[in-house]
Design a protein around this nucleic acid. Structure first.
Lengths: 214, 214
DNA sequence: CGGCAATTTGAAGGCGCTCAAAAGTAGTGG
DNA sequence: CCACTACTTTTGAGCGCCTTCAAATTGCCG
């Protein structure tokens, strides 16, 4: 039992689980999840690998006292669910209406592993870059890096629709929701971004964001 | 070019490079590095995978202004150097006298990849657990988790010899060296640990550390 | 329009950082 | 062996960024 497993032994879910699953077919066909629906939970047996067909996913861990760290968001086309153990060490939930293709991979070696290694390494690099953000950047830098990352992963669009709430962004960036909101407001005041909807973000001055992210 | 690559374009090494390499044979034989010696640098062409035979290694990234984030320490028996690109995105340096076995892997698929996937996933899980520490734990919790991790990875020994300086611990945990030192002192005052040497740590009350790490 | 949740904004306080200096450690050479 | 130097670690004081607590505002959906 590792340090972090120990941390989580006393965990209990804070809200009652409501699956909200519209349709879960057998085999490799996509499964549909409503916003907030659980895809898998810590301690569950690993079911394989997951590919986001549409929508978005948050993957996170919890501390015993309820503090949450979202280790990654996964958007359409991305793969997640890599684990070293037979049971999940993380929770995965849909951020919005989401379609997931589940590949049941009992054997993780041979040619299949050869195809998976690049995907796993992609996740590793993302996690390592996120370590730099969490370890050494201030609130403004974190939010700027986050917005640029989200934009890049949606094709570098000028206007993006965030699939997650402020609370999710905070738990991803290691900040309180109030601080996230304050940074958004400050960026809006400086005309670096515009906030047309609650979830929409228009990047007005990309260069300014990039300067801030450093 | 990603956000983080951009961040690092203006990077320059802060100290003059002194290889201090005693012996670097060809092929798969181990290479020896003195304390502080560079194993590879950001931007260099990837040479393959690296296995620590003895000693210890730090892998890190830098921001343009010199802030450093150590993404991982690697001890004897551990493998590192996984990259998605043809060039390194990180720096790797020996923390002390260290022997490294370099496997030159031109093809990262097939059975070889099958053997590598578990190692890569191990790195991924470590990075994700570290995200929880950096994102959601305070200074005391971070140091406690670090000490337990170091102890566990050295066989759960009661007394361990840290191969790294306070500055390295700080850059790993996202803290200043002063804060790391203060937490060490506080743990010593509470008789949770003892500090026989500058680098030595004796874990007197493991349970207390585990309670703190949560 | 009314009600609920999410977001925003404000005020006060705390944790960790920066700056600074003292104490301890190691390495070198006389 | 000891003196000298350079570096690391420790300790102190003050400050600033972010958090917490609280309340106002906005947005959304019936």
């Amino acid at each position: 039992m590792t340090v972090h497993d120990k941390i989580l032994t006393s965990f209990h879910r804070s809200t009652v689980f409501d699956p909200k699953i519209v349709h879960r077919p057998a085999g490799d066909a996509p499964t549909y999840f409503a916003a907030g629906a659980e895809i898998y939970a810590q301690g569950e047996k690993c079911g394989g690998l997951y590919t986001v067909e549409f929508g978005a996913v948050r993957v996170y861990r919890l501390l015993a006292d309820g503090r949450r760290q979202i280790s990654a968001f996964h958007l359409a086309g991305e793969m997640f669910g890599f684990e070293t153990d037979v049971t999940h060490h993380f929770f995965a939930e849909a951020l919005c209406a989401t379609g997931i293709r589940i590949q049941r991979t009992t054997l993780l070696h041979g040619d299949l592993a050869g195809a998976l290694l690049p995907m796993a390494l992609q996740s590793l690099v993302r996690a390592q870059e996120h370590l730099l953000v969490l370890g050494r950047q201030n609130a403004t830098e974190r939010v700027a890096a986050f917005l640029l990352d989200m934009s890049d992963r949606q094709g570098g669009l000028r206007t993006i629709e965030l699939p997650m709430a402020r609370a999710d962004i905070g738990d991803y960036l290691g900040l309180s929701i109030e601080t996230v909101s304050r940074v958004f407001s400050r960026l809006r005041q400086k005309d670096v971004i515009r906030l047309p909807n609650l979830r929409g973000v228009e990047i007005v001055k990309r260069q300014a964001l990039e300067d801030l992210a450093a």
